[in-house]
Design a protein around this nucleic acid. Structure first.
Length: 273
DNA sequence: AATCGCGCCTGACGGC
DNA sequence: TGCCGTCAGGCGCGAT
């Protein structure tokens, strides 16, 4: 599933193939996603040049002179760079044909993703307007996390996965960051000490940067025969390792369901206190 | 206001 | 072999 580092890697992978190219044609095969793909993009974007490609949280932003196309990959969304796209199959939703004969294809079997038109001020789009700072930006710091979390009884894992607090920290990297910071996922956010807030912010940045770096090294060229990047398998210390020994102390890692999501942690390294 | 938990989706996988 | 239940989970939204 694409989390922030994967989205960043995809962004860097597709950018060189698409930036400064004009849209020749858009073919929508299956508009049904989390919200329907707006039909008007077909005419709005015809002959428009893709000026820049950016990221906000897990949202990809394709910026054109007349507005921005927002793409979210949800759980199972993929973007492929294709030179000779085969006939679109069941879960292939849209093809964007560019002037350099490259086709950007969006595929999403589970349809949790989204493709939306944001107009000229994407930062005011309802989805983007309410989200918190970028985890890798300087304004996401220990002071911010400490102050925002005061008097909050919600568990710290849920808290950092709330995109209003910080954008783009998903289930995998929340678990990895809490392990790195040695904080129990159910610890009340409001009970974090200034020290723990600092440790957690440092951990989130470190874990995300490391994953982006690994993605970058794994992904030599986005353009493959099938156009897909092949999601890199990052070495994860806790996620998916329940029942296995903690890589720091050897204790058997435990799993909890928190808000319907599996959460792996080390009961010894991350005590609840 | 804050928190909780449901529902959207489909494919993979394990048990019988 | 095939059927069924469970799991994966980002995110908005309604309920409490």
């Amino acid at each position: 599933m694409p989390e922030l580092p994967e989205v960043e890697t995809i962004l860097n992978g597709i950018k060189p193939h698409l930036v400064q190219q004009k849209i020749k044609q858009i073919k929508i095969y299956h508009p049904r996603l989390r919200w329907d793909i707006p039909q008007e993009i077909v005419t709005l974007l015809k002959n428009k040049k893709l000026e820049t490609l950016t990221r906000r949280g897990k949202y990809l932003l394709l910026n054109f002179s007349n507005g921005t196309l927002i793409i979210h990959l949800g759980m199972s969304g993929r973007l492929a760079i294709l030179e000779n796209p085969p006939t679109a199959k069941k879960h292939e939703h849209v093809d964007f044909y560019f002037s350099n004969e490259i086709c950007l294809r969006y595929t999403d079997p589970r349809r949790f993703g989204a493709i939306l038109w944001a107009g000229k001020t994407p930062e005011n789009h309802p989805l983007l307007k309410i989200i918190g700072p970028e985890p890798l930006d300087a304004d996401f710091d220990a002071k911010y996390l400490f102050e925002r979390s005061r008097k909050k009884s919600v568990g710290i894992k849920i808290f950092i996965m709330n995109s209003k607090i910080v954008s783009g920290v998903g289930n995998i990297y929340a678990a990895e960051s809490l392990f790195a910071a040695k904080i129990h996922p159910l610890k009340a956010a409001g009970k974090l000490t200034p020290e723990e807030s600092k440790d957690l912010v440092v951990a989130i940045k470190k874990v995300l940067k490391h994953a982006i770096k690994q993605g970058g090294t794994t992904l030599k060229d986005y353009k493959r025969s099938d156009g897909t990047p092949g999601y890199f398998r990052i070495e994860l210390k806790v996620y998916g390792r329940a029942g296995e020994p903690c890589l720091r102390c050897g204790t058997t890692l435990k799993s909890l369901r928190i808000a319907g999501r599996s959460t792996v942690f080390c009961p010894k390294c991350q005590p609840l206190r």
